[in-house]
C-alpha cells in the first residue's frame, strides 16, 4: 500500500504528511534539548561557583563554527530553491556545499574536543565540562545525522527527481527543516556555553 499525501497536500491540513511528520519530530527534539537546557540551568544555579565559558573554551573557534553553520543553512535553503526553479545541477552544488560545511563544523569540533582531552579535561572533570560535552556531543550527532540525510538526497536519493520532482523537492525541504533546526540549536548553545 502506498503512503498517502507524500507530494499532494491533504485538503483539510493543507500539508503533506511528510511536513507535519517532520514538525512533530522537531517538537520532540525541542523537548530533548529542552530537558538538557533545563538540566544546565539547574546545575548552574545550584553550583556555588561557575566558570565563564570563555575561560575554558575556545571562543574564536566556536565563532568560526557558528558562521559555518549559518552559511550551511543558507546553502541548504538555496539547494531547495534551486529545485523549485527546476535546476538540478545548481541543487547539487548547494547541497554539496551544505554537506561540506557540516563536515568543516565536525572537524573544528574534533580539534576542540581533542585539545580539551589533551589538557586532561573530560566530562568527568567538573559539571561545566559534563554539560558542555553532553550538549555539544548530542548536537554533533545531529549534525552527523543531518549530513547523512543530505548526502542521501545529494546521491542515491536524488533518483526521485527524475520520476517525481515535486516529491523530491518536498523531501529536500523537510531535510532542510531538520538542518535549520540543528543550526538553531547551535545558535543557543554558542552563547550559553561559550560566552556566559
Amino acid at each position: 500500500m502506498e503512503i498517502p499525501y507524500t507530494f499532494e497536500v491533504r485538503r483539510d491540513t493543507g500539508l503533506t504528511n511528510g511536513k507535519i511528520g517532520l514538525w512533530l519530530f522537531l517538537a520532540s527534539e525541542v523537548m530533548l534539548f529542552g530537558a538538557l537546557f533545563a538540566s544546565y540551568i539547574l546545575i548552574r544555579t545550584g553550583a556555588p561557583n561557575w566558570p565563564r565559558g570563555d575561560t575554558i573554551l575556545n571562543v574564536p573557534l566556536a565563532t568560526f563554527n557558528t558562521i559555518v553553520l549559518i552559511s550551511s543553512s543558507v546553502t541548504m535553503v538555496m539547494a531547495w530553491a534551486s529545485l523549485v526553479r527546476g535546476s538540478f545541477a545548481t541543487f547539487r552544488i548547494y547541497m554539496g556545499a551544505t554537506i561540506l560545511l557540516g563536515f568543516v563544523f565536525l572537524v573544528v569540533k574534533y580539534f576542540e574536543y581533542s585539545h580539551k582531552f589533551h589538557d586532561g579535561l573530560y566530562p568527568s572533570t567538573n559539571n561545566f565540562l559534563a554539560i558542555y560535552f553532553t550538549l555539544t556531543g548530542l548536537h554533533m550527532l545531529h549534525v552527523a545525522g543531518g549530513m547523512a540525510l543530505n548526502a542521501w538526497f545529494w546521491g542515491p536519493g536524488a533518483k526521485l527527481w527524475k520520476t517525481n520532482p515535486v516529491w523530491f523537492t518536498n523531501r529536500v525541504e523537510h531535510s532542510g527543516l531538520f538542518w535549520h533546526f540543528v543550526d538553531l540549536v547551535w545558535i543557543f548553545l554558542f552563547p550559553t556555553l561559550y560566552l556566559l
Binding site: 491540513t13 493543507g14 500539508l15 511536513k19 507535519i20 514538525w23 512533530l24 517538537a27 525541542v30 523537548m31 529542552g34 530537558a35 537546557f37 533545563a38 540551568i41 543553512s73 543558507v74 541548504m76 535553503v77 525541504e173 532542510g176 527543516l177 535549520h180 533546526f181 543550526d183
Partner: peptide
Amino acid sequence: FMHLISEKKLIYVVLVITAIKFVALLAL
C-alpha cells in the same frame, strides 16, 4: 529558512503546544 512566516495553521498549533511544554520544562 524554515518558512514559518507563511506556514499552515496545523504547524502553528503543534508549535504553540510545544512552546508551552518547553517553557514548563525550563521553568521546572
